[in-house]
Design a protein around this nucleic acid. Structure first.
Lengths: 338, 338
DNA sequence: ATCAGAAACGGAAACGTTTCCAGTAGTGGT
DNA sequence: ACCACTACTGGAAACGTTTCCGTTTCTGAT
C-alpha cells in the first residue's frame, strides 16, 4: 500500500542501493538524482521508520523521565530541549513517574522498550538504580537538576550551582541585617536540598553567625512543606525575621501561610523565594527570588546528548555541567536597623 | 549482539513461530510455555521494537501537537492522558509548535514520520489543514480544547461547554447587580473565544441588558491582552464594574493591571477568571473562577483514542464530547446595591 | 486400540530498509 | 585509442519479527 523504495527504484529504473544511497546523502549522478527526486515527489514517498530502524538500530527518539509532567519548571527545560533536538530530527517521548521511584524504574524500561536512543532523567531515585538498564544497553543517559554521585563518570549531568546561589541569597538577607533566618527545604540526602543547606551554612559561617539547627526545616519540596515550615519557624522561641524558601512550591506555601497568618511581606517577615514563575509578577510586593536558567539547562542538555549520539557512543569523558543561577531582587526583604 | 527470538527458539528447541505466538498471547503447551519463559528470563530477551513495527505497522506511540509545552493547562490534560495511555502500552511523543501555524503543520509531518499510531492536537489552525496528512494516512486524530467544523465527522474531539459556562459566569455577575460587564477574550474566529462571547451575550440577553460592543475586548488569550483589556475597559466612558477574563493568562493580566492601578478586588472592580491554577490559592481575595475539568478531558481523550486504535480504525462515527466546566465561587465579585 | 477433530507446531516468506561487494561506467593522462 | 583509476551502480544478504499454511501431536469418544 504505502510507497516504498522499491517503487522509486522501479519508476526510475535504478537499483535499490542507489535510492538508499541518495536518501542517506551519498553521491549519485546528477541525472539520476533528478529522476529520484522527481519520483519521490510524484509518488509522495516517505521512508519507513521501522525498516530504517531495524537496520540502523537508531530511532532518533529521546526518552524523558520526570517526576511529574505538571511541574512548570521541568516543562520550561523540556521546551528548549525539544526545540534543539527537533532541529536535529529527534523527537521526545515523555514518561511521567508521578513522584514514585518504582514507576521511575518502570518508566526507564518502558522507554527502552520503545527503543529510544538516549534518556534524559530528572531523577527521583538517589542511587540512580533506575538507570541501570539503560547503561547496560549503552543508551546514553543525561541527568538534569540533580547529580548522582554513584553515576558520575557514567552519565552526563546538567545542574545549577545550588550551593553558591543559596549562599548568595542568605548573604543578601544577612546584609540587610537579618540574623535569625529560617530555611525550608527537602529532606536530607536530596541532592539539591543538601547543596542549598550547605550554601545557607556557608553564608552564616562567613558572617560568624552560629547556625540554629531549629531553623533548618527539612521536609520536602512541596507546598505543604512551605505551609508547615512557616508555622514551625514562626512558632520557635525567638522566631525568625526571614525565610529562605528553596523551591517554587515551598515559596508558594510560605506566601500562603504568611497571608493566612495576617503577616505582611516584608514588614513582618522577609522572604527569599526560589524559581520565579509567571504568576510571581502578580504578587505584591515583588519577590526577591532565585531564578534558575531553565532554557539554558534545556539547551545544554540537548546539545550534550546530541554530541553523545552522533559521537557514536561517547569517546570523551562524561561531564557534569554546573550552571550559575541568579538572584533577582524584589522588595520582599526588609532592611533591619542594627 | 542483542538477544532475539531466534536465540529463544534455539535454547528451547522450539520454532520461531511458536515463540512469536507465545509473545503475542497465543496458545502454547504448558511445558513449552515454561521453557520459553525460562529462556526469556535467562537470556533477558526483549522484543525488538523495529522488527515488530515493521510487520505489524503499529508503534504504540501517540503523537501530541500543542501550541506550547510551557502551558500548565495543557500539561494537566497530558498528565492524565499519558497515565491512561501508558497502561495500555502507548507512549506519547510531544511536539511543540510554539504558537506557530507553520510549525504546527510541520509537527504533524514530523510525528507521522516517527510513525505514530494516532495524533492528539490542541489545534492552533482554525481550518484543521495541518491534519490533512494524518487523515490521508488514516491515522486517527483527536482534537482537544477546540473543535473544528471542517473536520467534524472525520475526527474525534473533546471540548468543554464554553458557551454555557460563560453564560453562567456572566449570569452570576448580573445576579450580583452588575450591568456594565466587560469581557476580554481572543480574536474572532477562535472557537473557544467565540463560544465564550456567545455565552456572555446569552446572559445579557436573558437579563434584558443591551450589549455594549465596546465592552467586548477581543485580542488574544495572553497576558498582554489581560493588561491591555483592563486598561481599555476602565478607560471607557461609564467604565465597567466587572470583568470576565476568559483565559488563565488574561486573568493573570487583569489582576496585574488592577494591582498596578491601585484598584482593590472586589471593592473597586469585580472579576471572574478562567482556569484555576495552584497559584490562585495565594491571591487574596480568592477568585471566582471557571474551572475546566482538565484531568477528565485527558482521560476521555485517551479512552476515545484507544477505542479507535484497537477498534481497527474506527467503525463507529467520530464523536465530539462536550464536557461541563464549573464555576468556583470565591470572593472577587462584589454585590452591588440596586 | 482406533480414529476424527482440535490444538499446537515449524518452515518459509514476507515487511522495507541498509550495506557489502563485485561489477560497470565514466575520467584524465599518455 | 588505450589504460589505470575513480565514481557510481545494483544484486543480494542481512536486520528481527509476524503470519500463512501444511504438518504433527494431542484429546477423548468409540
Amino acid at each position: 500500500m504505502a510507497v516504498t523504495i522499491k517503487d522509486i527504484a522501479k519508476r526510475t529504473g535504478l537499483g535499490l542501493a542507489t535510492i538508499s544511497r541518495y536518501l542517506n546523502g551519498g553521491n549519485v549522478r546528477p541525472q539520476n538524482l533528478a529522476a529520484i527526486e522527481e519520483a519521490i515527489q510524484e509518488l509522495n514517498y516517505s521512508r519507513n521508520n521501522f525498516a530504517h530502524g531495524l537496520k540502523t538500530r537508531r530511532s532518533s527518539v529521546i526518552g524523558v523521565v520526570l517526576p511529574e509532567i505538571r511541574n512548570a519548571l521541568f516543562m520550561e527545560v523540556i521546551t528548549e530541549m525539544e526545540y534543539v533536538l527537533k532541529k536535529q530530527g529527534y523527537a521526545i517521548l515523555i514518561s511521567d513517574c508521578h513522584n514514585n521511584k518504582q514507576k521511575e524504574m518502570e518508566s526507564v524500561d518502558f522507554l527502552l522498550s520503545k527503543s529510544v536512543d538516549g534518556i534524559v532523567s530528572f531523577p527521583l531515585s538517589r542511587s540512580g538504580r533506575h538507570l541501570a538498564a539503560a547503561l547496560e544497553r549503552n543508551v546514553p543517559v543525561l541527568l538534569v537538576d540533580r547529580a548522582i554521585k554513584q553515576l558520575s563518570g557514567k552519565v552526563d549531568a546538567v545542574v545549577i550551582d545550588n550551593r553558591r546561589i543559596a549562599c548568595e541569597a542568605v548573604r543578601h538577607l544577612i546584609g540587610r541585617g537579618h540574623r535569625r533566618i529560617g530555611i525550608i527545604t527537602s529532606s536530607r540526602g536530596e541532592y539539591t536540598a543538601d547543596e542549598r543547606v550547605r550554601g545557607y551554612l556557608d553564608a552564616l559561617d562567613e558572617a560568624g553567625i552560629e547556625p540554629d539547627p531549629g531553623l533548618i526545616i527539612r521536609k520536602s519540596f512541596d507546598l505543604e512543606s512551605g505551609l508547615e515550615g512557616y508555622r514551625k519557624l514562626l512558632g520557635k522561641s525567638g522566631g525568625v525575621t526571614a525565610i529562605f524558601a528553596t523551591s517554587h512550591n515551598i515559596t508558594m506555601g510560605v506566601l500562603m501561610a504568611a497571608g493566612a497568618d495576617g503577616k505582611r511581606v516584608p514588614r513582618d517577615i522577609s522572604i527569599v523565594g526560589f524559581d520565579a514563575m509567571d504568576w510571581l509578577r502578580i504578587v505584591n510586593p515583588p519577590l526577591t527570588i532565585v531564578e534558575q536558567p531553565m532554557a539554558q539547562i534545556g539547551r545544554l542538555a540537548a546539545e550534550i546528548l546530541l554530541r553523545r549520539l552522533v559521537g557514536g557512543g561517547g569517546e570523551d569523558a562524561r561531564q557534569t555541567v554546573i550552571l550559575p543561577a541568579k538572584l533577582n531582587f524584589g522588595a520582599s526583604v526588609r532592611r533591619l536597623r542594627p
